[in-house]
């Protein structure tokens, strides 16, 4: 995949598939330590130790529509190409955390790409889900919690045409702000 935000979307979709109702996406870009760190956490059904270990094997999948799972092995390969790695921590019945680390300046590192589009694809999921997102660039952060937005909205869904366009603009502006103040 050409953008890390597509891997992120795929990882968040795994969480939804695992029945998660609360997702966290925390991205930290740190030039001083030349590090890009992406963390996705969920409160989905989780995995036992054996499964957590096997999940990075592309020939392992619990899906029945196809015999190979690709999502996580591809994400791991992308990190490893850039002097980084992918860690998975999971506990059955509690949830899963996936952390991908990259050397920020590595030549082979794909760009983060279009995060607002990734977030909207998740927020428009048929499954009702809340997302906490924090993105930090050299100490400047943008934060979003859809639980707070939902409380404000009452019975109006986030997928309402007016709300979804407002939200997608808000994310775009927020990210542009941190990029600007960080440079």
């Amino acid at each position: 995949m050409r953008e890390l935000s597509l891997h992120i979307l795929d990882t968040l979709e795994n969480s939804l598939e695992a029945g998660a109702t609360r997702l966290e996406l925390v991205i930290d870009e740190d030039s001083k330590h030349d590090l890009l760190r992406i963390r996705v956490s969920d409160n989905g059904r989780g995995m036992d130790t054996e499964m957590t270990r096997r999940v990075l094997d592309p020939f392992f999948t619990t899906r029945t529509t196809r015999h190979v799972g690709l999502g996580l092995p591809l994400f791991a390969a992308a990190a490893e190409r850039c002097n980084g790695r992918l860690h998975i921590q999971s506990q059955p019945g509690v949830g899963t955390t996936v952390i991908a680390e990259f050397q920020h300046s590595h030549m082979d590192r794909s760009p983060l790409g279009d995060l607002p589009k990734t977030l909207m694809a998740v927020l428009l999921s048929e499954r009702p889900v809340d997302l906490y997102y924090r993105h930090t660039v050299n100490g400047e952060s943008f934060e979003l919690d859809t639980a707070a937005i939902r409380r404000e909205l009452g019975d109006v869904p986030i997928s309402h045409p007016r709300i979804r366009s407002w939200l997608s603009e808000a994310i775009k502006e927020g990210l542009a702000d941190i990029q600007e103040s960080a440079t």
Partner: peptide, 22 residues
């Protein structure tokens, strides 16, 4: 810290949206 556009916006949007929702 730059934060999400005001939740005030949302209150207004919500009112507009609610009527047509059903």
């Amino acid at each position: 810290m730059p934060r999400l556009k005001t939740l005030e916006d949302l209150k207004k949007l919500r009112e507009d949206a609610q009527g047509e929702l059903k």
